[in-house]
């Protein structure tokens, strides 16, 4: 086998990185910008090393990585029946675990580490917030129990979370209509 040192390793999907910056003088959609798209492992690393680490972003900013053609919002037809595995971090974890968790999340996505259930994945979002940062993997169908649970288990394993830590999956339809304290997990792992 001859390995061409100049060839890049193709990804199963083309991915789009989005950046959101909270500017109250603009609409939500105007604050959301497509940064770039990539479809090789090498181009992913070139992008990752070029952009600011999530922990260095100011509060109110988000990064989103979604499959090409899916916009990082509930309203997108690929997302509207779906939901998210949500990781909420304590304030001090921004300095200890946030960047590592986000990188592991990105690697799970681009490496298609959920095997055949990877088709269920739409993307991932990181929210940088003063009250506590959040990372989530979004999937397309909240009723697809087997797929959602499999993704949750593999995700938790890759983050290196202990079996004592419980993470929850919430349907976007519920998140959109209920306030934080009423938020109900559809599944937990």
């Amino acid at each position: 086998v001859v390995v061409d040192p100049f060839s890049k390793h193709p990804l199963q999907n083309r991915w789009a990185l989005w950046f959101f910056k909270n500017d109250k003088s603009k609409t939500w959609q105007d604050n959301l910008r497509l940064v770039t798209k990539f479809d090789t492992v090498e181009d992913f690393w070139a992008l990752y090393s070029h952009i600011q680490l999530a922990s260095k972003l100011t509060s109110g900013c988000d990064y989103s990585l979604f499959k090409d053609g899916i916009e990082p919002m509930w309203e997108d037809s690929w997302n509207k029946r779906g939901g998210r595995w949500l990781i909420t971090l304590a304030k001090q974890q921004r300095h200890t675990e946030l960047d590592r968790f986000w990188l592991e999340t990105l690697l799970c996505l681009i490496g298609e580490m959920f095997s055949d259930y990877s088709d269920e994945v739409c993307g991932a979002v990181i929210n940088i917030r003063a009250k506590g940062d959040k990372i989530a993997i979004w999937t397309r169908e909240a009723e697809n129990r087997d797929g959602v649970i499999h993704i949750g288990r593999i995700y938790k394993e890759h983050l290196g979370l202990s079996s004592k830590v419980v993470i929850g999956y919430q349907a976007h339809a519920d998140t959109a209509t209920k306030s934080g304290s009423l938020m109900k997990n559809k599944f937990v792992v």
């Binding site: 193709p10 199963q12 690393w45 592991e104 690697l107 490496g111 298609e112 580490m113």
Partner: peptide
């Protein structure tokens, strides 16, 4: 069709290759 899957180790190695 076949799915292109990469494990964490491989992806991290690609980061460090020239």
């Amino acid at each position: 069709g076949t799915r292109i899957i990469y494990d964490r180790k491989f992806l991290m190695e690609c980061r460090n290759s020239p």
